[in-house]
Nucleic acid binder design. Structure first.
Lengths: 116, 116
DNA sequence: GCAGAACATCGATGAATGTCAATATTCGAG
DNA sequence: CTCGAATATTGACATTCATCGATGTTCTGC
């Protein structure tokens, strides 16, 4: 596969004032929408919340597959989406893949939504 | 049509701790995902930002159709989505329809994302 | 090296979604 | 009441997306 082609959340958020200050350009709207789409899914929100509640804000896929009632390939897919969007990072230790929250990523998005 | 069937944002947000505090239930995840989906679109984000930057945080459809480069029916559709999700309200004055930001609606969602 | 476990990728499928053109509705002016 | 302007609704279409089963890949233990 190629290099990291996608939208780090932090970058999309660091540059701009809250969306309620000035009209967004098309490009800004595209970036923010991409970040929001990545978390606008029940399964991905639950994944984030479980990871966040885990020790070190890190969890292995084996801890995430069972409580969501969805298949392992689907969990893997959702984690990939979250990773490419910059909300979590992946690190493999042995056979296990651990996913960790990127500190400040969610906050960056939240800051853009806040009214002034 | 029936009564207000849909998800006021404020309700979805008022009840819960940030999603990084405890694992979300399926129902909580569904609610938050619905709110996020409503704003996870470039056109709708731009609509919100234009409305927010207008006097009284209120704008008429005629002011929204032109700057977005999308057709009037599409603008109308997006405004309906935002209205049903509780981010804006609609009030008709004469032939014109004015859409106004619901104070605190965006902030409610933002609060749920913050890593506190 | 081999078997099994953990995870990722692929291909397919059904559902949801953004957009448009055409049409309907509602309102003010005359 | 009629006409035109502003907005909403409808129906259609192409695209995206969540999910699954099957398969591939990579690591560990023996």
């Amino acid at each position: 596969m190629s290099t990291m082609t996608l939208l780090p959340v932090i970058d999309a958020a660091a540059c701009c004032a809250p969306l309620t200050r000035d009209p967004l350009t098309q490009a800004q709207a595209d970036d923010l929408a991409r970040s929001l789409k990545a978390i606008a899914d029940p399964a991905r929100l639950r994944l984030i919340s479980i990871i966040a509640a885990s020790e070190g804000q890190e969890a292995c896929v084996c801890d995430l597959t069972e409580p969501l009632n969805i298949g392992q390939p689907t969990v893997s897919h959702h984690l990939k989406v979250l990773t490419e969007a910059g909300f979590v990072t992946r690190s493999k230790r042995g056979t296990w893949a651990y996913f960790k929250l990127v500190p400040g990523a969610l906050d960056s998005v939240a800051r853009l939504l806040v009214t002034a």
